[in-house]
Write a protein that binds this DNA or RNA. Sequence first.
RNA 1: GUGGUUGUAGCUCAGCCGGUUAGAGCGCCUGGUUGUGGCCCAGGAGGUCGGGGGUUCGAGUCCCCUCAUCCACCCCA
Length: 422
Amino acid sequence: MAAIEPIPGTSDIWEPEATRWVFLEDTARKTFPLYGYSELRTPIIERTDVFVRGIGGDTEVVQKEMYSFQDRGGRSLTLRPEGTAGVMRAIASLGIGPGDDKRVFYMGPMFRGERPAAGRKRQFHQAGVEAVGKISPVLDAECIAMLCHYLNEIGLSSHRLLVNSRGTREDRQEATQTLRDWFKTRIDQMCEDCRRRLDTNIWRLLDCKVEECREIIDQAPPVMDLLSGESRNFFQQTLECLQASGVNPEIAPHLVRGLDYYQHTVFEVVIDSDNLGAQNAVAGGGRYEIELPGSRKPIPGVGFALGLERLLMALGQDQPTSPSDSIKADIFVAILSKACISSALELCAQLRQRNLRVLCENEVRSMKAQMRTANKCEAKLAIIIGEDEMNENRVTVKHMRESRQETIPRREIVDTAVEALM
RNA sequence: GUGGUUGUAGCUCAGCCGGUUAGAGCGCCUGGUUGUGGCCCAGGAGGUCGGGGGUUCGAGUCCCCUCAUCCACCCCA
């Protein structure tokens, strides 16, 4: 039983679950183009440095979560842990100049070597977008509005949209230092986690839920005040644009997100529902600048990623995926002797030409057994081909629901079936 | 990586303080006279009790290890 299970943190997705995935993907393909985005399919493996330089070498993701390996040429390759870096690499590879406005969306599997938990897989799936080349609060706002549009289309309700600005790279470094200095003098009154975070992730410290810590944190200088005037202005304009688009986010002063490349606007969509467990963010993104091997200067962009399995959970239909009990069909074709097989196959082919789902009996079994199968596959029609029918060049068609049946000339059956199933 | 949870039939699970051939429900197969489903009835197939080691006269049950699962921390979508 053990060896045939998918490896940890991955799963097989069966119907009817698979259909729900297709719905999320189709909705993305329908919604994003309305904003000028077109689909880009990038490789799932990239050179490792695409991610190290793109995401940031200090990031948790890069340091301990990447699936990296050496290929036969000794190059270090990595299964993509997120979509942005690869997209940026693709765009950079065909050249991008100042003032270019490139908009793409993508979807597919991502890989991170984390410990699996509720809403967290090692192979997980994202749909995301990137608007690359220009720096403008209008784009940021439009991107967020598009995210809301999408969430609305898939029917997600009761979620919260959180936004914040983390300023420019310089702002952030400076703010980090200021905060660190400020907390350093009070850290011995704070919890163990916070002490650790002082050095590792001071922005996380700001989110600490321990009450004693909260009292101290509440007195800390507001992050927004540590940003440059230009950054604050950019954020202000973004908020205005959002409002004009009919989007009303919550401002989350401590939201910073974990990837190094973010600058200015960052945002996240969270769900307050317990079926998601601790992983309550279904989407996240922001404005960024990414450095890539070969590009002279960092390329700016804004984008987000949606966590597909988390969205599915948030939509509240997260039954475990298992194969449906039986094949479903519109028509079941029963055969009562070997002599009927070729006739049955010919008929099946004709019916499928008319876009009907047809299940053909594949061995000679009792009538009772075959009718049981017809019932189980939820066929509306059972077509019976036996010796009697063969001799008269007719077929028997049984309307399962009404338990009514009739024997009609063979040449009429296709049209009769099509009509019965309309 | 650190903690905890669970692991018995295809699925959901029961199995008391160790004690004969390991159970239920659902599902599956076959039948209930000739070529007819659902409901009902009868019968049947299907289990290395996750794996390995140990304690014991005896282990699904106790101990150790291991693998897998789920959850939390961490981090992120």
